[in-house]
Nucleic acid binder design. Structure first.
Length: 827
DNA sequence: GCAAGGTC
């Protein structure tokens, strides 16, 4: 038997299709897809299926001095048990094996890991094939010309694994232990995350140190044939054109000169046409950046792209490549979109171009093609709104890369008024070119009329504006990812995760991300004692070392040992400052949690966590002072800069994904609840008949509201109510539940008719059931609703369902598909 | 429980 191993299931399936000429079938072994035809089996891994770690005697952080990790063994253990088991079973039956993982460094290492697992079972020959994209021609070529595993290249990857683990774990444990932060709130450090955090912290330092400077700008409205256009005053500053006037008296003088005359004389008119080239194909970074201008975070953009990829609508979303492969036939792909409602007309127009040549970016890599649509077009109803918007972006980007350039006409007019110069720059889109199919990049025009040299233009108004220089702007997520790429930090697959990690660790907050006090302290400590790990030099050095290993000029052991020696020198410096660092980190942690003074004792009120894991506000004077305030039960609290004047307390925001909301001042919220009275609306359905329990609208001190039984805590029946908006009880009545209908009047003009609170809650439960189902891979909202109609209205119901029954009940769903979902639920 | 890199 011949065994082929790929990096992921998707690649295994497509390679099986190509090599078997469509004759392959799939079955599942330990929950892993195995594709088979004739004497061949193809199995896909899930990236790395083994991971590096220290032996278990190093597990307890308090038992091990962090410095001991430097010389500890580094072992490799299976992390994907099912896949490893399947691979080994298949290896036992194999007479030969072929590694077909991705064509990049990490792919070589993943291939070598598979090779070692195979070697535990058999001595059968193992070869390696390399292809840049999974197309018929490339795959056939690669399998016709197999090569050997490049063990040096794999060793380069292993050096990275070891160095990252040793530095990351030793320094993370050192900082966490010195600040006595264990458990969930440890203080992490790493080769990628720490320099990324330093980028954010450095920018924040610039902002804090920024000293704004005053300047003035002067504008004049010029008239031509009854319509006006704006021109700006400028002067010659040592051979350069300058608009900002830094001295107020100078600005006043210029303003006086400009207002002393009624007209300006045109001294020069310059026209030129500029070609505006279409954008280059999407790599991951460019895609994230385009999605971010549509309002998606990096993480959101990537998970939607992932979904579109697994359902087969777009190509692999993790790529550095910006050059389409030779065998992508642009016109054939355009053809697929002809007649496809939304895109048909644009595709036809593009096909009418005399020449269809795609743009090319600077990066050409071997691993995957740039992100483009596959040509399989989803029905719009199968995608959520977000998915459709991202899909359309990818389609239109592909369209743009094969579209013609746009042409702009620029018109620059310079005029003299009272001895002062004025200028106006106009631009007009002459040939829209790619803008016709790619509406995302700006194509805004600025009208300046045709004028001639020597022409007199009336001045209708002169304005002087006092301005101030602005501090540099914070990095947005997509700008941050671009900067990481420029500095070589992280990879196309990990950059967005690194940023998420900084949020999770409590290092950054908000969007654009702002560093917390803790982040400032961690970066300061690292700069002082472990500058290497917080600078992008560490990655640059590692890249150079990895290249040397890959070229056979150095060995894995030499490089790893040298790195370990360097880390030992860092620990020599750290040793004496352990307490000082710990105290600084602890103070910073406290600063991030401080809301304001305790009204009872004057100490700080802090955001704390109860033993049950819920958050509340507690006094730092505990146990002498036991003053507390509740917080809402959903989400992670974040202390905002906003401030309540009355209580001198910071506002709190609760982070809970889509349900994130601002709680405000916890004292105000608690007082509001104390002042409000319960409003009885009807009998309690649980205990009304037996104990005369009644339902009432209640306000809790945590800021939430609900309809609950007046006999609470004897009866805990309750229904949720929205957090915001005035609740009013209407005359309308629900006969079924004996309750009045409610209306929620938020700030918007359109009040929400919530209706009977019981009916509303039942509808809400049905709706969330559909959303739960949609979270499964490959399930669209239409299918989820159909499942709901057929009685599969929750994940639990789906897990229990008989696949054949579901398949007959719901049109368009196969029993195999249901089994896949069930497998996914089990996993 | 630590990192970063794959992948879902």
């Amino acid at each position: 038997m011949r065994l082929i191993i790929t990096e992921k299931d998707n690649a295994a399936r497509r390679i099986a299709e190509i090599l078997s000429e469509g004759g392959a079938s799939a079955n599942r072994q330990n929950g892993v897809n195995v594709y088979r035809w004739g004497d061949t089996r193809v199995v896909g891994l899930s990236g790395h299926v083994v991971g590096v770690d220290f032996p278990k005697e190093y597990n307890d952080w308090r038992d091990v001095e962090p410095v001991e990790l430097i010389d500890a063994d580094v072992t490799k253990e299976p992390t994907q048990e099912n896949i490893v088991a399947t691979l080994k079973q298949l290896a036992r039956e194999a007479d030969e094996a072929t590694i077909a993982t991705d064509y990049d460094r990490e792919g070589e290492l993943i291939g070598k890991e598979a090779y070692e697992l195979i070697r535990e079972e058999t001595d059968a020959p193992v070869d390696r094939v390399r292809f840049s994209s999974i197309t018929e021609r490339e795959v056939r070529d690669a399998f016709a010309n197999p090569d050997d595993i490049d063990f040096d290249l794999a060793a380069a990857g292993e050096a990275r694994q070891i160095i990252d683990l040793v530095w990351g774990a030793a320094l993370t444990r050192f900082l966490s232990l010195s600040a006595r932060q264990l458990g969930d709130d440890f203080i992490s450090v790493g080769r990628v995350q720490s320099p990324t955090l330093k980028l954010i912290v450095d920018r924040e330092r610039e902002i804090q140190a920024f000293d704004p400077e005053d300047y003035w700008e002067i504008f004049a409205d010029l008239q031509k044939n009854g319509s006006g256009f704006e021109a700006q005053y400028f002067y010659d500053d040592d051979g350069k054109e300058a608009e900002r006037v830094w001295v107020e008296d100078d600005a006043d003088d210029a303003y006086a000169d400009l207002t002393s005359v009624d007209a300006a004389t045109v001294t020069s008119v310059r026209r030129r046409t500029r070609t505006d080239s279409p954008p280059t194909p999407f790599n991951t970074t460019a895609f994230i950046s385009a999605a971010s201008s549509l309002g998606y975070s990096a993480q959101q953009a990537m998970s939607i792209a992932e979904e579109l990829y697994t359902t087969g609508y777009i190509t692999y979303p993790r790529t550095d490549n910006t050059v389409y492969p030779d065998d992508l036939e642009e016109d054939a792909l355009l053809d697929e979109f002809v007649g496809a409602g939304h895109f048909g007309e644009d595709a036809e127009a593009l096909l009418e171009q005399a020449d269809i040549t795609a743009t090319e970016g600077d990066e050409e890599t071997t691993d995957h093609p740039p992100i483009h649509p596959t040509g399989e077009i989803p029905p719009k109803v199968d995608l959520s709104d977000d998915e459709w918007e991202i899909y359309e972006l990818v389609v239109r980007r592909f369209f743009a890369t094969v579209a013609e350039a746009a042409t702009w006409e620029h018109l620059r007019v310079v005029a003299d008024a009272g001895g002062r110069s004025l200028k106006a720059n106009g631009k007009r889109l002459v040939e829209p070119g790619y803008h016709e199919v790619y509406p995302y990049s700006s194509a805004s025009e600025n009208h300046v009329p045709d004028v001639e040299e020597g022409e007199e233009l009336a001045i209708s108004e002169v304005r002087m504006e006092a301005k101030q220089t602005q501090p540099p702007r914070r990095y947005g997520q997509s700008r941050l990812i671009q900067t990481m790429e420029d500095k070589g930090l992280g990879t196309k697959s990990t950059r967005h995760n690194s940023i998420e990690k900084l949020y999770d660790r409590g290092y950054i907050e908000g969007d654009p991300p702002r560093p917390t006090t803790l982040a400032m302290a961690v970066v300061e400590a690292a700069e002082e004692f472990a500058d290497h790990v917080v600078s992008d030099e560490m990655t640059a050095q590692l890249e150079a070392d990895m290249t040397a290993i890959a070229n056979g000029e150095a060995t894995l052991d030499e490089v790893a040992d040298e790195s370990r020696e360097m880390l030992k020198r860092v620990f020599d410096e750290l040793r004496d400052s352990r307490e000082e660092i710990g105290e600084h980190l602890q103070e910073s942690l406290k600063a991030d949690k401080t809301l304001g003074p305790c009204p009872k004792c004057g100490e700080d009120m802090l955001v704390r966590r109860s033993r049950q894991g819920s958050y509340f506000v507690g006094c730092d004077g505990f146990p002498e002072c036991r003053n507390t305030l509740p917080l809402p039960s959903t989400g992670e609290p974040q202390v905002l800069e906003d401030h309540c004047e009355e209580h001198d307390m910071h506002h709190v925001k609760m982070l809970a994904g889509r349900d994130t909301f601002v709680h405000g001042c916890p004292r105000c919220e608690a007082e509001k609840a104390d002042e409000s009275e319960d409003e009885v609306i009807g009998p309690c359905p649980e205990c009304g008949s037996e104990h005369d329990g009644e339902l009432a609208i209640k306000h809790l001190r945590s800021g939430s509201r609900l309809v609950g039984c007046t006999r609470y805590p004897e009866c805990d029946y309750s229904l949720p109510l929205p957090r915001n908006g005035d609740i009013s009880v209407t005359e309308a009545f629900c006969e079924e539940h004996d309750l009045p209908e409610l209306v929620i009047d938020a700030d918007s003009d359109d009040p929400w008719e919530l209706g009977c609170p019981i009916c509303n809650y039942e509808e809400y439960q049905a709706r969330t059931a559909v959303e739960d189902l949609e979270d499964l891979s490959g399930i669209g909202s239409a299918t989820a609703e159909k499942l709901g109609d057929a009685g599969v209205d929750s994940l639990a119901a789906l897990r229990e369902a008989d696949p054949d029954v579901v398949a007959t009940e719901v049109q368009g769903v196969s029993a195999t598909q249901v089994r896949d979902w069930q497998d996914e639920l089990e996993a």
